[in-house]
């Protein structure tokens, strides 16, 4: 059906991202194809856990097993938007959530008044007019965490040593998209980091992996000093621009803080599960 309709059709799961965009005429299509047939179960295996794409964010965030083994993932799902949206929005939908920009996530009339940007109907980026590319920001909370956990098709894999944490910065306690965030998954042997992934949200057009910080931490004792240095390394590649809430200078400064907080949570956590 999708192949037949081409670009005039889109898939919809919970609809919490797509429908507002359709109302603002950011997409102009004739048909939405419901994904209600998607499986919506959480399968808990001995050292992995599969979350079907159709599982709602609310269910994923409240699942006891996900919380016990993949704390960061449960937290990330539970920090998306607000309670009624988490009841409708799905894990699959949040992974695929469109990039955001406050020059783009506006009504048709507003975008027309501002001059259309390259993401829809126009040919320049209003945030960075000299740039050849779009600077809209990846604003998924669960995608960075999924990448940090090295997810294979929504299959969360854990070893007993696996710990994870997600820290989200936003203006209000609810509703808002992230303006900076850190997803960290790490394996620890005692307090030595054996492997680690750090993925940043809302500082680039895609979930940004902080590879230098990851490499630095490998084999290190996860103490205050290591965390400080890793956070500084992690923040360096972040390039927030003036297209989300609060100033980008401050957001840039805050990247280091959220990474630090996430790493401290990892270091404070016990092992992911006792199995």
């Amino acid at each position: 059906m999708a192949a037949e309709l081409g670009s005039r059709a889109m898939f919809v799961a919970g609809g919490t991202d797509l429908f507002p965009k359709l109302k603002r005429r950011q997409f102009e299509i004739d048909t939405v194809i419901g994904l209600d047939f998607l499986p919506r179960e959480i399968h808990n295996g001995s050292n992995e856990c599969t979350v079907d794409a159709g599982v709602t964010l609310a269910d994923a965030s409240r699942d006891a097993h996900v919380n016990a083994r993949f704390k960061g993932y449960a937290d990330a799902a539970g920090l998306v938007s607000s309670p009624p949206l988490r009841n409708a929005g799905t894990i699959g939908g949040n992974l695929c959530v469109d990039t955001r920009c406050n020059y783009y996530d506006m009504t048709y009339e507003w975008r027309k008044a501002a001059g259309f940007c390259m993401k829809k109907d126009g040919d320049i980026c209003l945030v960075a007019p000299s740039s050849p590319r779009c600077w809209a920001v990846s604003s998924s909370d669960t995608a960075p965490m999924a990448i940090a956990l090295d997810v294979m098709s929504l299959r969360l894999r854990a070893t007993p040593e696996m710990r994870s944490a997600y820290v989200k910065l936003r203006r209000r306690g609810s509703i808002d998209f992230p303006i900076a965030g850190a997803a960290v998954a790490a394996q620890l042997d005692g307090d030595i980091v054996t492997s680690c992934r750090i993925v940043l949200s809302a500082v680039a057009s895609y979930p940004l992996q902080a590879t230098a910080a990851e490499a630095f931490l490998k084999g290190k004792r996860l103490d205050g000093e290591a965390i400080d240095q890793a956070a500084e390394l992690a923040a360096r590649p972040a390039k927030p621009l003036d297209n989300a809430d609060l100033t980008h200078f401050w957001r840039k400064r805050m990247v280091r803080v959220v990474v630090e907080q996430a790493l401290h949570r990892i270091s404070d956590q016990g092992a992911g599960f006792d199995g």
């Binding site: 419901g34 009841n87 409708a88």
Partner: peptide, 13 residues
């Protein structure tokens, strides 16, 4: 029984 936003729901679903 769970809160959802009626402005983002289609009756067909």
């Amino acid at each position: 029984g769970r809160p959802e936003l009626s402005c983002l729901l289609l009756p067909v679903q």
